[in-house]
């Protein structure tokens, strides 16, 4: 008899470790491409340091960035898996173990007292988002150790429907990105959530970041066109890697939409730094685990 709880805990640990120490293959390719195309010497030197660093972290199995963020988990529950167990407890065990063993930086504090228990656990962290998939026969877990250099540049704005929405969005994303300068560690992945309510817009923007493969377009051609417009605009600014000047400011723009009120459209803007840390696996009821983003 397989102890699924144990499998979840081991998998969640492995996901945190892989996410913290190894970039997904498509992100590595995108950085490599940016390096090859970069015309600014200072921008090229930044990308070289990033690629060298990623290689070194992978080789020694240590964190790519010292800000291993706050532990977020996206769980998609396949109703056909027949699994009916608590994932919170095994995920908490995994976070505790990863903080000591990987190690991750103990970042999580009480937001009012600033107390740091040193475990990355407490007051609702790790935070778990739940979603259902009626057709899937597995439980899918994505671990996201989310760094705050990029997180803290997230924004929510409201655009009235008297405005041309796509133009307004391009304007807002360009301006916000230029104000953020080097602090979200460009080249970034930009996530946009358009519509819904305040929380929906930001949540969609956050989830959009982890779309795979990196840079794939939204199936709705109107959204896809906007994604390409924003990407082109950002990469025409000349801001470049770490905002020191150069050709690649952004690796990809992923947008999601949701129906919204006729008066005003919320736009959530989120950033993922070039150290794009997320790792996904599927757990089947027989205990089999398939790693999606980091196969080995």
């Amino acid at each position: 008899m397989v102890d699924i709880s144990e499998v979840i805990s081991k998998t969640a640990y492995e996901l945190l470790k892989r996410a913290a120490t190894k970039l997904p293959q498509d992100v590595k390719w995108a950085l490599r491409r940016a390096y090859e195309n970069e015309s600014s010497p200072i921008g090229k030197a930044q990308l070289k340091a990033m690629l060298d660093n990623a290689e070194m972290a992978e080789k020694y199995g240590i964190s790519i960035c010292q800000d291993t963020g706050t532990p977020l988990f996206f769980v998609k529950w396949g109703l056909k898996s027949g699994l009916n167990i608590d994932v919170r407890r095994p995920i908490m065990e995994a976070v505790k173990k990863a903080t000591i063993d990987v190690p991750l930086r103990p970042n999580v504090i009480n937001p009012l007292t600033k107390e740091n228990p040193g475990t990355n656990i407490g007051w609702g962290m790790p935070y778990i988002y739940y979603d259902l998939d009626p057709e899937a026969d597995y439980v899918e877990i994505t671990a996201v150790p989310k760094g705050f250099g990029s997180e803290a540049k997230s924004t929510l704005v409201w655009i009235t429907t008297s405005e041309p929405i796509p133009e307004a969005i391009v304007r807002c994303v360009v301006d916000n990105t230029l104000t953020a300068m080097g602090e979200p560690c460009p080249p970034t992945i930009v996530g946009l959530g358009i519509g819904g309510t305040a929380d929906i817009a930001l949540h969609l923007a956050k989830k959009a970041i982890f779309r795979t493969p990196l840079g794939s377009l939204h199936p709705d051609p109107v959204v896809a066109e906007l994604e390409q417009r924003v990407l082109k605009a950002l990469n025409s600014t000349g801001l470049g890697p770490m905002a020191m000047g150069g050709d690649t400011t952004c690796l990809a723009v992923h947008a999601e939409i949701c129906g919204t009120h006729t008066a005003v459209v919320p736009l959530g803007i989120t950033y993922q730094c070039w150290v794009a840390r997320y790792s996904t696996a599927r757990i089947y009821p027989n205990g089999e685990v398939v790693y999606i983003t980091h196969p080995e």
Binding site: V157, V170, D175, T179, V264
Partner: peptide, 20 residues
């Protein structure tokens, strides 16, 4: 992109957070 830089396009917050 046919963007008028003199307009803010944003209704709320009153001061657009990201402005060059």
């Amino acid at each position: 992109e046919k963007i008028d830089s003199s307009r803010s396009y944003v209704w709320w917050p009153k001061k657009i957070p990201g402005s060059i």
